[in-house]
């Protein structure tokens, strides 16, 4: 497990990083926590000539409160997210999802930005980010642009971040007071999601006033179960009412078939897990 030899750069500012990337062109690869990139290099699935480490760029790390939004720097680690009371209070779904990622070692190195750009459909932060309506701030040689969540994920391992660009931060609209739950289905504890469902709901007077539901590993990108979200509005948070609304959870999905389950099985799981996630999020 020895990677092909590469050059290494560790810029300390965003501008410097963009410069290094521009110079190296397609032969460069950015490294954040390395939890996906290093296995790729070690298995020699990729052999970049230059690896650009974002780890020393202070401005990319941290969580700030901007009134209506939380802003999470791309280099913020999973562990940082778990330690943040702001995220817990205003975007609880993210916390619930991040809790389930891999193990403590990986959560201390892996970053929110790295996970989102890596865009593994089985990864656990994409669907919650989508469900929460996050915005993605991408910085390139030409400056900054902001991409809404539903335009960020393009395909399997493909996002709106282009060559020479960096994801610098995500802006998450506050969902203060919303209940949240991430229902992850795996065979062994340290596995990627076979299917997972993130749900966050606002309950008002015993019934569901608003709901957001994101699906992990039900297609080549994270998906939002908008039909379920709409069907939930106005329903009491009871097993029966929620079951009915969640029956359509797998509609429009295109899950993979692999060792862990056929597409049909995944569709079935999605409906069960959606119901469980919504009920738990509603505190029922």
């Amino acid at each position: 497990m020895i990677p092909v030899q590469f050059d290494y750069a560790a810029p300390t500012t965003l501008q410097e990083a963009l410069g290094v990337l521009a110079e190296a062109g397609e032969d460069a690869k950015v490294i954040a926590g390395g939890q996906s990139l290093l296995p790729i290099l070690r298995m020699r699935l990729n052999a970049p000539e230059k690896v650009v480490d974002l780890g020393r760029i202070e401005e990319l790390r941290g969580i700030t409160d901007e009134g209506s939004h939380l802003v999470i720097g791309a280099m913020t680690t999973y562990a940082d997210v778990l330690a943040s009371s702001a995220v817990r209070d205003h975007a609880a779904l993210l916390v619930e999802a991040v809790k389930t990622v891999a193990d403590p070692q990986i959560r201390h190195r892996g970053t929110v930005g790295g996970a989102l750009v890596h865009a593994d459909p089985a990864g656990d932060v994409g669907a919650p980010a989508l469900a929460l309506g996050a915005e993605f701030v991408i910085t390139g040689p030409g400056g900054e642009r902001t991409v809404p969540a539903d335009e960020f994920f393009r395909d399997l391992f493909e996002t709106a971040v282009g060559e020479g660009e960096l994801l610098t931060r995500i802006r998450v609209p506050k969902h203060t007071g919303w209940g949240a739950h991430y229902e992850k289905f795996v065979r062994v504890a340290h596995q990627w999601s076979i299917v997972a469902v993130g749900a966050t709901v606002r309950v008002d007077g015993g019934s569901i006033a608003e709901a957001r539901v994101g699906l992990t590993n039900m297609g080549s990108t994270p998906l939002r179960a908008t039909a379920v979200e709409q069907a939930l509005v106005g329903r009491p948070a009871t097993e029966e009412a929620v079951r009915e609304a969640c029956a359509a959870a797998a509609e429009g999905t295109d899950p993979p078939s692999d060792l862990n389950g056929s597409a049909d099985y995944r569709r079935h799981l999605a409906t069960v897990l959606t119901r469980r996630a919504v009920l738990a999020a509603a505190g029922a």
Binding site: S36, I40, M43, L45, W192, P256, D258, L259, N260, S262
Partner: peptide, 12 residues
């Protein structure tokens, strides 16, 4: 069913 799900994107 099927094979392994790739968690690493690049071609080989």
């Amino acid at each position: 069913s099927g094979g392994a799900q790739p968690h690493f994107d690049e071609d080989a």
